[in-house]
């Protein structure tokens, strides 16, 4: 140990130590309260999963850990076949919608960001103003439109309103601002056409934004309820939320089955989140602050 000239006097030790201890104590209480709060936050999810693993006779016990865990409820719910269908429908719809948003939102965002052309301002303001129009105002016209074009009760009918979003367009526009114009100029000199420049030069530079957008759009479509509820009629066309809503009514008091259905619709997004946690939280911040 190095000998130091400045030795702490008893008084100074007392002075510094007491607040330090208090600070540690304060920090511990802060940690404890936040930890308890966090545990309470995940309780509904924990109870959903726990109940889905319980036998009917145990459902009304408040214990979180099932006494004899069983996958019986999952077998029952999945054997019925409908959840499987709804799951596939949701996957297909959310995937196609996400791809469409990635493609078109970034194309429009890029064009508005990097091109100067007559009408740019009008397009910009027009798309911006659609942020003000609530979906709920459009569902009636969309329904009438779907009815006259025969889009009711089809994948296309469920998907078409969300194929592009103003939110995604502005998110992408913001991120393309960070792509230096020099890169684009250099690519032009190299003889790439504008489509190639967008796809091979600009797009790879905004991958984090694309990922953030993909997460938002996918989650949004996976959980979307109002429009799929309106546009679907037949059980085979339901998405997971619409199916679950009807299933809940039908299962009546069989809460373990309802919890199983709820778990089936929630677990995929939770797993994705747990895998890409850091990444998703960064994406949410980016989208929240820039979008």
């Amino acid at each position: 140990m190095a000998v130091t000239d400045i030795r702490p006097t008893a008084a100074s030790v007392l002075e510094t130590k007491a607040p330090a201890r208090a600070r540690n104590m304060g920090q511990f209480i802060r940690w404890l309260l936040l930890f308890i709060g966090g545990i309470l936050m995940v309780m509904p999810i924990a109870y959903m999963i726990s109940t889905s693993l319980k036998w009917p006779h145990e459902v009304y016990n408040v214990n979180l850990i099932p006494e004899e865990p069983t996958l019986e409820n999952y077998t029952y719910v999945l054997e019925d076949g409908r959840f499987y269908l709804w799951f596939v429908n949701s996957i297909i719809i959310a995937t196609i919608t996400t791809l469409s948003n990635l493609l078109f939102d970034s194309l429009v965002g890029y064009t508005l960001c990097k091109f100067r052309f007559p009408g740019r301002q009008i397009i910009f303001i027009a798309i911006l103003s659609t942020l003000m129009i609530p979906t709920e105002m459009l569902v009636i016209p969309w329904y009438l439109m779907s009815q006259s074009f025969g889009w009711l009760d089809s994948y296309w009918g469920i998907m078409f309103p969300g194929l592009m979003t103003a939110f995604g367009t502005f998110l992408m526009k913001q991120f393309f601002e960070s792509v230096p114009d020099d890169f684009i100029e250099a690519a032009r000199i190299d003889g790439l056409n504008e489509l190639q420049i967008w796809w091979t030069v600009a797009m790879p530079l905004v991958k984090p934004a694309l990922a953030a957008l993909a997460i938002f759009v996918f989650l949004g479509n996976w959980t979307a309820f109002l429009w799929p509820l309106i546009v679907t009629n037949s059980v085979e066309m339901y998405t997971i939320p619409v199916g679950l809503s009807g299933f809940g009514d039908e299962a009546d008091v069989a809460w373990e089955l309802i919890m199983t259905g709820a778990a089936i619709s929630t677990i995929p997004t939770l797993v994705v989140f747990l895998i890409f946690q850091r990444f998703i939280i960064r994406g949410v911040v980016m989208a929240g602050l820039k979008g």
Binding site: L219, F225, P241, L244, I258, T266, V272
Partner: peptide
């Protein structure tokens, strides 16, 4: 993560959990 997790859930599913 504990606080953020509920944001990743579906409103319909969680409505049924809370209803229970």
């Amino acid at each position: 993560m504990l606080y953020f997790l509920p944001f990743m859930t579906s409103a319909v599913a969680m409505a049924w959990v809370w209803r229970w």
